[in-house]
Design a binder for these strands. Structure first.
Lengths: 242, 242
DNA sequence: GAGTGGTCTAGACCACGAG
DNA sequence: TCGTGGTCTAGACCACTCA
């Protein structure tokens, strides 16, 4: 049942992977051109390219059109902390990364109406976040908040956190749906990842005590450097202290 | 910035996708052979195959070597309910699917020792679960339990649930780490999915009130038909400021 | 054995990036 | 402009499935 022929592209990918992980090829270094590699391994270009595609899908190699193939720098792993949590951890990323935000006012359409449980054309504030480590993007987030909840002033993530923490009917439930999929073309280019590298997609819906959806967030995290952590604690019924 | 050339393979994939979703090609139906499709679209076989690879990665098409390409049956979506929860929902899947289990006694090695926080060579019970809908596998789970916790009798999931629910130091914390990645070759063949289809990987660690790890589970779910749901409820402190 | 998909070749031509 | 990767061709041969 086990395939005895590892196929050339896997053999080549294994060899290159070993050279990368063992340090013979260093982070950020440019690989020889595909033509050179093809002659070195005595395979045709399509075969060599399929070998590189494997490494690209693993996040080990980054291809830059017209420039070359590069050993991907080992990026800091980021952990999305689920469960909302205290306002201090609302940004939900364990490490402080450079963050950019851009806000626009939109009207609810299609799936946003069902997600936020609002009538069509309701005014919403859409905030697009991206986090970066250096020049490389780390994550992508679309956050939607009903317009009357958004502070009129700059929509930084902390602002939203404060707004949500100060809600008069306080936040009562956070629901997070997590799925794994391949990125859309837009996500792949924005995150600078291969379109064959899996992404972690988190849809977060926060509801206040009155049952109103006060925030919906669509997060996209590259699978090779991000994961999500959910911790559930049980209060044992023997009301065990603090 | 927008690519004006949709490339042949995308055009072909779009056409086939439309035919599938619109019902012109029905679920379970076999597509024309790759050679026929290639002549129909007047492209070479590698080009046509790369178009099929796109659909395969989306979970729309299943390739069966030596047999043909088939329209994938729309499978029931399964939702993994996070947070452990009551024993009744311990199996953590919303729909009752056919489930098979196989148990073996092993000794803790490498990352299992760190995961379960036990010394090397500790006796463990490993249970391998697979869930099926009909003939197609739906999920894959490796569950590890310290040997002295496992009931000596058949290791069905309910048994484990009961064992954990009856622990004398009760279960106090469940931690779940979720990531998105491509499947290993073994996972891809076991789940009968393309190795380019993302999977959702959940590592669950359950700890009792004494701080002992009583269960570790490694779950693998196909990204095209599974997601994980986490719900966090807040006990609102009613003397909040106004 | 007939027909299917899986892998690979040895080129060609196009699109992009840097100098 | 030049070298890079991106796409595609028109085959060949192998491996698998089913009758």
């Amino acid at each position: 049942m086990i395939r005895p022929v590892p196929s050339r592209r896997h053999a080549i990918a294994d060899d290159l992977r070993r050279k990368i992980t063992s340090g013979h090829l260093r982070a950020g270094e440019r690989l020889p051109s595909e033509a050179q590699l093809a002659t070195h391994y005595t395979v045709s270009t399509p075969t060599l390219r399929s070998a590189l595609a494997l490494l690209q899908a693993e996040g080990l190699v980054e291809k830059i059109h017209g420039n070359g193939n590069f050993v991907r720098r080992p990026l800091r792993r980021i952990t999305y902390a689920g469960g909302g949590g205290a306002p201090a951890t609302w940004t939900a990323f364990s490490a402080p990364l450079r963050m950019t935000a851009r806000a626009t006012n939109i009207e609810a359409t299609s799936h946003l109406t069902t997600l936020l449980n609002v009538p069509p054309h309701s005014p919403l504030t859409e905030v697009l976040f991206t986090t970066h480590e250096g020049k490389t993007p780390h994550s992508l987030a679309h956050i939607y908040v009903p317009h009357d909840i958004t502070p009129a002033t700059p929509p930084l993530p902390e602002q939203i956190a404060v707004s949500l923490a100060d809600l008069r009917p306080p936040l009562s439930e956070v629901q997070e749906r997590v799925s794994a999929r391949l990125p859309t073309h837009e996500e792949a280019t924005t995150l600078r990842i291969s379109s064959s590298l899996a992404v972690l997609s988190v849809t977060r819906v926060s509801t206040d005590a009155a049952g109103r959806v006060v925030e919906a967030a669509l997060l996209v995290l590259p699978g090779d450097r991000a994961d999500a952590l959910f911790t559930t604690r049980y209060v044992t019924d023997e009301r065990s202290s603090n």
